[in-house]
Design a protein around this nucleic acid. Structure first.
Length: 494
DNA sequence: GGTGCCGGGTC
DNA sequence: GACCCGGCACC
């Protein structure tokens, strides 16, 4: 959920920095220090809000400088040698598309900050110390997808590296050709654009007026990195929570899932549906995740179409599934009239339980599994086999071995055992066999009745002598009860 | 026809 | 559940 957290936390404060010693073109930096064309301070300040001005199409910035002062966005602010207030320069920084065109700007997003570097022909996003595209490779999709090799910059700090420890020039080593127009590049552009769009359209941002101290979570002297560490409970452990300042973060009925869900719980259908589109879409556009979401409880989205058990980790994924599979719409189209919202539901899944359940499942799909054809026991929980084992002692006969447990209703009241008499000791197997004979038919529920043997499939007559043969009609009282009742002999079994 | 026993009915 | 029996298949 790193990326998600970044998205929302970045509304609180972004630090706008600059590469050391990069040439600028303006008059003074955001921190008030003059830094002309020949040099620039390393850090310019913390961007508290980035607000879009739709009338002018530009962005308004609320900046908290390192000295704690707030910079009026209308001032002639120059960051990274870029005059933010100059026409077009806003987009020069924050519109990755334009940035790509002017690809000598290196975008870096470090947790809550966006570092704009203007030094190298690279274009890169870094989230929480991770290169954004690498992060997406490792968390959201498999490496090398679409043939794009995961680029690993050996100089890129690890994900948990504090931003202040990052080499501000690190991204400049990423060998991204200027004129490269690969799909991965476009993805990064889209992602960055969406991030920034979200920044500019978020209620939190829109409600942040320039100079509003409430938007400053911590004293400026404390430093932006402290703000980061104080705001996050953890950025590397996988567990995270919002601090009190996050109370204002609106919750949503359909929160997206973290990427670790995707990698840790890959549903059979996710491989095709949980595409980059869905991930990025959620990362970029979806509402924040509700607080107090237990890390073991994940929200999944289940298709409610009849006979469709599709469960995806993202709402966009399930919407796409519904659109494409059930509504027959163009899967490539992102058009949504909201109709698909009615066809899926949000479910909470205990990942611990689910993982256990999945571990018990066979790899075969439930729809294609070659389950016992006569005895599907769909409602049985996964623990049912143990229960069956208790209910069904070992049944060594071929019938019991091949038939599901419901056939193994052992009747312990040997109904036809009959009175005393010349009781012949029976072996274990023999007794079991006799029991098996006694258990046929009536005790079975009709719904799970075994294949009813037709008249032609009558059990072959046993070879053993029965009570009639042994005792004769004159000693009928010595017959076993079953024989007297014209049932299968319980005394002399085959 | 004798035998084994299934299926069903009665109590 | 115990008891009984019609009826069928097998030998």
């Amino acid at each position: 959920m790193t990326s998600k957290r970044l998205l929302h936390r970045s509304l609180v404060g972004m630090r706008v920095g600059t590469a050391t010693g990069q040439a600028g073109s303006g008059s003074h930096a955001a921190d008030g220090k003059p830094y002309g064309k020949t040099g620039a301070p390393v850090d310019c300040g913390i961007m508290l809000a980035c607000k879009s001005d739709h009338s002018s199409g530009s962005f308004l910035y609320t900046l908290m400088l390192d000295d704690g002062t707030l910079r009026d966005p209308r001032e002639d602010v120059l960051l990274n040698g870029i005059d933010l207030t100059a026409p077009g320069k806003e987009k020069f920084i924050f519109d990755p598309k334009i940035t790509a065109r002017n690809s000598d700007v290196d975008h870096r997003i470090e947790a809550d900050l966006i570092v704009v570097q203007k030094r190298s022909p690279t274009h890169r996003l870094v989230l929480n110390g991770k290169k954004l595209d690498d992060q997406m490779h490792t968390e959201g999709r498999g490496p090398g997808r679409r043939g794009e090799e995961p680029r690993k910059d050996p100089q890129t700090p690890p994900a948990d590296t504090p931003p202040e420890d990052l080499d501000p020039l690190a991204s400049s080593h990423i060998p991204v050709p200027r004129n490269r127009k690969a799909a991965g590049h476009a993805d990064k552009e889209v992602m960055a654009a969406a991030v920034l769009t979200s920044l500019s359209s978020s209620p939190m941002v829109l409600n942040t007026t320039p100079g509003t101290p409430a938007a400053v979570p911590e004293p400026a002297s404390r430093g932006w990195k402290e703000c980061l560490s104080a705001s996050y409970s953890s950025s590397t452990s996988g567990n995270w929570s919002w601090d009190a300042s996050d109370q204002s973060v609106p919750s949503t009925p359909s929160p997206p899932l973290s990427n670790d869900v995707s990698k840790g719980f890959l549903l059979p259908s996710q491989g095709e549906d949980n595409t980059e589109e869905s991930e990025t879409t959620h990362f970029l556009f979806e509402d924040p995740i509700p607080r107090k979401r237990k890390n073991s409880m994940k929200v999944m989205f289940k298709c409610l179409w009849k006979n469709c058990e599709k469960v995806l980790s993202t709402s966009s994924g399930i919407q796409r599934h519904i659109r494409t599979v059930h509504l027959g719409r163009n899967g490539d189209s992102d058009y949504s009239d909201g109709e698909e919202d009615f066809y899926y539901s949000e479910i909470e899944v205990n990942m611990d339980t689910l993982s256990e359940g999945l571990s018990n499942l066979t790899p075969t799909s439930p729809t294609t599994a070659t389950a016992p054809p006569v005895f599907p026991v769909p409602e049985l929980p996964h623990s049912e086999p143990a229960h069956i084992a208790l209910r069904c002692p070992p049944c060594p006969t071929p019938l019991s071995q091949s038939a599901p447990s419901t056939l193994c209703h052992i009747r312990t009241d040997h109904a036809y055992q009959g009175p005393a008499g010349p009781i012949r000791p029976m072996g274990v197997g023999e007794k079991r066999h006799s029991v098996q004979h006694a258990t046929v038919t009536k005790s079975h529920p009709p719904a799970i009745a075994a294949p009813k043997p037709s008249a032609g499939s009558r059990k072959p007559r046993g070879e053993a002598k029965k009570c009639r043969k042994v005792y004769g009609m004159e000693k009928k009282d010595m017959w076993c009860t079953a024989c007297r009742w014209k049932k299968a002999c319980q005394r002399f079994t085959d």
